[in-house]
């Protein structure tokens, strides 16, 4: 497809601050453009008896919207985050305990889910929880002329025909989660996948850079 010329291949600015809270074991503030979330990790901590698993840690994810109680879309977001984190964590190392991940939405200007996934990974790195691989998420949107737009904001998403969110792992660079909405064909899906895969590599470099900077003055 000849869409390369008028495609926006730049992500919005990603910024983060590690260890912003003293009480949780790991915490991070991450912003992608004007979208921002705060993630806190506790774990391994004591688990309620009915949630206890004898062969691995139970992973609990809580997604809190900016105001009010979580709705259906927030629960969907929560379940995606839960599945991604559970896949990445080596939960068999901590049987009979739980790992609590709390995601607080600060501001939503589009792409909150990919921002939250990236926040979870950074917070888990900050907490020193054992993981099998790193994970990074990136999103892209498709407008009615067939142009791709990487990391779209809410203004673009309002008139977009389709939007894609992908999560990749750092080892095999494979897809671990995919969430799409709108109408598109298979070729467009493949193109979006390639585009997001390229963008996710930038996010992995960003993680490594931030963790190195954070650890350098603490070891």
């Amino acid at each position: 497809m000849e869409v390369e010329n008028n495609t926006n291949l730049l992500m919005r600015d990603v910024n983060c601050k590690l260890g912003i809270f003293t009480r949780p074991d790991g915490s991070v503030f991450i912003s992608q453009g004007e979208t921002a979330v705060v993630v806190g990790i506790y774990g391994p901590i004591e688990v309620k008896l009915h949630k206890m698993l004898i062969n691995k840690a139970s992973v609990e994810t809580h997604y809190c919207p900016k105001s009010g109680t979580p709705g259906i879309s927030d629960k969907l977001c929560e379940s995606i985050l839960h599945n991604v984190c559970e896949a990445a964590l080596v939960s068999t190392l901590y049987p009979r305990s739980s790992i609590l991940i709390i995601i607080q939405e600060m501001q939503n200007r589009g792409g909150i889910l990919s921002c939250a996934v990236n926040g979870c990974c950074l917070a888990l790195l900050n907490a020193g929880t054992d993981m099998k691989f790193l994970f990074a998420s990136s999103s892209c949107g498709l407008d009615d002329e067939g142009n791709f737009h990487l990391d779209p904001d809410n203004l673009f998403l309002e008139k977009a025909t389709a939007s894609f969110i992908f999560v990749f792992d750092s080892v095999g660079k494979g897809l671990i989660a995919s969430h799409t909405s709108g109408s598109f064909n298979l070729a467009q899906y493949q193109n979006a996948l390639e585009l997001c895969k390229k963008a996710s590599e930038g996010i992995f470099d960003f993680y490594k850079c931030m963790i190195k900077k954070d650890l350098q003055d603490k070891i």
Partner: peptide, 9 residues
């Protein structure tokens, strides 16, 4: 591995 950790195991 020398990393950062707050929770004790």
């Amino acid at each position: 591995i020398d990393g950062q950790q707050k929770r004790y195991y």
